[in-house]
Design a protein around this nucleic acid. Structure first.
Lengths: 111, 111
DNA sequence: ATAGCATATGTATGATTGCACATATGGGGA
DNA sequence: TCCCCATATGTGCAATCATACATATGCTAT
């Protein structure tokens, strides 16, 4: 998946990497998760502590069905994982990288 | 901007950070840049070498007006910067963090 | 088994967005 | 000055998406 580009100024060939095809699709789907305020708040809350749907709904003041829908997305892309305790299902971040990216975003914005 | 959450399992209070308001808005806008294939390809190309609108358009096979529109977004959020040489305007990544985040995404997906 | 709470799903809608067409601006060279 | 190339802007369309309503499923305890 390597790309050759011509550097207009040096007139030399440069080797690089421009994602295409399946990787490109997966990347956009992955990053689109971060592109919504509701999901960002849910992810941030889960970065603090694992929680169940109802707790997230109450703490963040978001409709329960909305939270459930969004958590499904998050699970589909592998960002959160679940652990059942009785009738309660605990959601947590499945990967450090998710939190890393959140922090990179905050860093970029200079906060 | 700190939030107190109750950990359902330990019953203890946890200090954390859930972005709200302006930061939340800026974060979603920032990450939404990565949520589109065209922009992702443009950013990846610029990570290899600075380029002008026409070159990007040719190398990636994207309509010139589309490239221009997207570069405006990228400039508005501060992801790219420009340098004029005569009538040609060179675009380049303005920050390492942008490329870091791209790589984090690839890493998450296991590529 | 049945009541009650936790979670998930189906669906309609309002809003957002990526794109390309046509066109406009702007700089450089003849 | 006039033409050409590089870049930017206006606009409309098609597609996607976030949300909330209503409802369904699933687990637990009595």
């Amino acid at each position: 998946m390597e790309t050759l580009l011509l550097d207009r100024r040096t007139q030399g060939l440069i080797e690089g990497y421009v994602p295409e095809g399946e990787l490109l699709f997966s990347l956009t789907r992955f990053f689109s998760i971060f592109a919504d305020g509701t999901r960002l708040r849910i992810l941030s809350a889960l970065a603090i502590s694992e929680m169940c749907v109802t707790d997230i709904s109450r703490v963040l003041g978001i409709n329960q069905t909305t939270v459930s829908h969004q958590l499904r997305f998050l699970k589909d892309v592998g960002m959160v994982c679940t652990e059942r305790h009785g009738k309660i299902i605990f959601y947590s971040l499945s990967n450090e990288i998710v939190n890393d990216i959140l922090l990179k975003g905050v860093e970029f914005l200079g906060y």
